[in-house]
Design a protein around this nucleic acid. Structure first.
Length: 569
DNA sequence: AAAAAAC
């Protein structure tokens, strides 16, 4: 392994001049976002690229135009070519007669946002508007400016008011459209100021919890949160083994404002009695469909049950939310609002997708090497199905003389993972071979291309993987290899390409319906075995019981829970 | 069937 890293870091000579332009772009984008090309664009254009996700499909061949001046013209075009995009709630804000309502609808159409739920709070258009409507703390306001957030994205303009009105929310918005800020901003506004001794009625212990499926993503969210927090003494904890042990001290624990972490880490601390979530007022699931699938569900349920405040606000965010996951989500949300940006399960049109037929597994490596022998724009992200395939492919590429190859999967040590992420962020990796661990949420703004070396296991996986490129209004390229063995699972992915306007070979379109894909998915749902199920039920009943017992009796209930678990196993 | 998440 060490030899491999040596090789991949400096072993091979390479003509960097060939890629000078790309390297320049890449280096730029990995520095402070203040100076990134995208931030510049926001300042210069009337409509930031971040807002204009659908420029390619909606205005094909047309230049972007200043939005406000163009409203009238747009209105007519939209009316002609597509049905209404707004799905009004049962309260009905559809006063078709008033000008305000018409404009409202226009803006909604531009954003392609659908909302569902009772009394949906109105969205906002500028952060200035947000500042006047709600009390936006000045340090947050200046941090937004500092980091180049000059106009809200669609999901931000809808989700932020909903969360600020203390409503529960299920938000679906494509990859790279600013979901993180959509929940961090309102959470921090609602918390108002850092907790400190004897101040206000903040209670003791963390007031907000944000959960993500991987360490890397939790880390990234933490970084974003720290940016917003600059200028005030917020205590934002990235929950790891190390921080967990410091939180064993109640005095430390009580001073935390926001906890960001992975579920199992929190559950472990809960069971050790090192964590108290009874003061949590805001609970957020990022990558919600992943967090609600069978492997995480028990843990999530335990965490939800332990956030015992009756008024805890819950919100779930993802780019994909299959019907079964949505049902689970709606069972835990209270009078929720559902927001969908764009078409569900459709990647951003700025990602150019293609399928590449490789007869069998042994043809993949030559195909990839041939691809990489052509000029390409780094960095490239390559997905494999297993950790060992990721490592061995990385080694193969290094042996074949491909420069700046890196590998990242959860089988590596924490340090190795952090180093690999660091090299990616600094632009030192040109090709990173990875597993599903990198598929969701990770924001490497410069990623030019995603290659699905191994076929993704689901439509959701496909959408999240290719969503590592084409972020924040940039363009991106996504190539997916498929073998004869993958053919039975090809149709659903091909449909995703078709729906987002990417070409698909005719014979693929003609493939029969994917019966095996369904069977495969059924198999996945069935996986939690009966023993696990019984344990989880026991745990939840114990937790419910515990909730009924106030304050000092909590300890006793916890003992009961332990006993119940022991007797079951 | 694999990956991810604790120790």
């Amino acid at each position: 392994m060490e030899a491999f890293h040596l090789l991949s870091r400096g072993g091979i000579k390479f003509d960097k001049r060939k890629y000078r332009e790309d390297v320049k772009l890449f280096n730029k984008s990995s520095t402070s976002s203040k100076n990134t090309p995208s931030a510049q664009k926001i300042k210069n254009d009337h409509l930031p690229a971040e807002l204009d996700f659908f420029k390619y499909t909606q205005d094909a061949g047309q230049k972007r135009k200043p939005q406000l001046d163009d409203l009238g013209g747009r209105k007519k075009r939209r009316k002609r070519d597509s049905g209404p995009q707004v799905e009004d709630d049962e309260e009905g804000n559809s006063d078709a007669g008033s000008i305000v309502a018409v404009e409202e609808q226009l803006v909604t159409q531009r954003h392609q946002v659908k909302t569902k739920g009772s009394n949906v709070p109105s969205h906002f258009e500028t952060f200035e508007e947000l500042r006047t409507r709600y009390s936006l703390p000045s340090h947050i306001s200046s941090n937004l400016e500092k980091y180049g957030y000059s106009r809200p994205t669609s999901i931000q303009s809808y989700a932020i008011p909903i969360l600020l009105e203390s409503r529960d929310l299920a938000a679906i918005s494509p990859t790279g459209t600013g979901k993180t800020l959509s929940y961090l901003l309102p959470t921090m506004i609602a918390l108002d100021s850092p907790n400190s001794k004897g101040k206000k009625d903040y209670g003791s212990g963390a007031r907000a919890v944000i959960l993500a499926p991987t360490r890397e993503l939790a880390h990234q969210i933490h970084n974003e949160c720290l940016k917003l927090a600059e200028g005030r003494k917020w205590r934002i904890t990235l929950f790891s083994k190390a921080t967990a042990s410091t939180l064993a001290d109640k005095n430390v624990r009580d001073k935390v404002d926001i906890i960001i972490g992975t579920p199992l880490r929190l559950v472990t601390s809960l069971q050790q009695g090192h964590l108290d979530l009874s003061n949590v007022r805001h609970l957020i699931l990022d990558e919600a469909d992943r967090m609600l699938d069978s492997e995480f569900l028990d843990q999530i349920e335990e965490i939800f049950a332990t956030c015992s405040r009756p008024d805890v606000q819950k919100a779930v965010f993802s780019a994909t939310l299959p019907a079964n996951a949505e049902k689970v989500a709606f069972d835990v949300l209270r009078d929720p609002i559902r927001v969908v940006v764009g078409l569900k399960d459709t990647p951003l049109p700025s990602i150019v997708q293609s399928l590449t037929y490789v007869a069998d597994d042994s043809s993949k490596l030559p195909t990839l090497l041939a691809h990489l022998s052509q000029p390409y724009k780094p960095p490239v992200l390559v997905f494999t199905s297993t950790q060992s395939r990721a490592s061995s492919l990385a080694e193969e590429l290094v042996i074949s003389g491909v420069p700046n190859v890196d590998c990242l999967h959860a089988g590596m040590t924490k340090k190795e993972r952090e180093d690999a992420i660091g090299r990616m962020r600094r632009g030192e990796s040109w090709i990173t071979i990875s597993t599903e661990v990198m598929a969701r949420g990770m924001d490497f703004k410069g990623v030019m291309e995603v290659i699905n070396y191994d076929f993704p296991q689901s439509v959701q996986s496909y959408i999240h993987r290719i969503g590592r490129t084409g972020r924040a209004g940039r363009e991106g390229k996504a190539v997916t290899y498929f073998t004869n063995d993958d053919a039975p699972f090809l149709k659903p992915i091909a449909n995703v390409l078709l729906q987002s306007g990417s070409p698909v070979p005719e014979w693929v379109v003609k493939l029969p319906k994917p019966s095996k894909m369904k069977r495969r998915q059924m198999g996945r749902v069935k996986r939690p075995d009966t023993v696990n199920k019984a344990r989880s039920i026991g745990r939840n009943q114990a937790l419910k019981k515990r909730d009924m017992i106030a304050g000092s009796k909590r300890r006793k209930a916890k003992e009961e829970r332990k006993v119940m678990l022991e007797t079951e196993s």
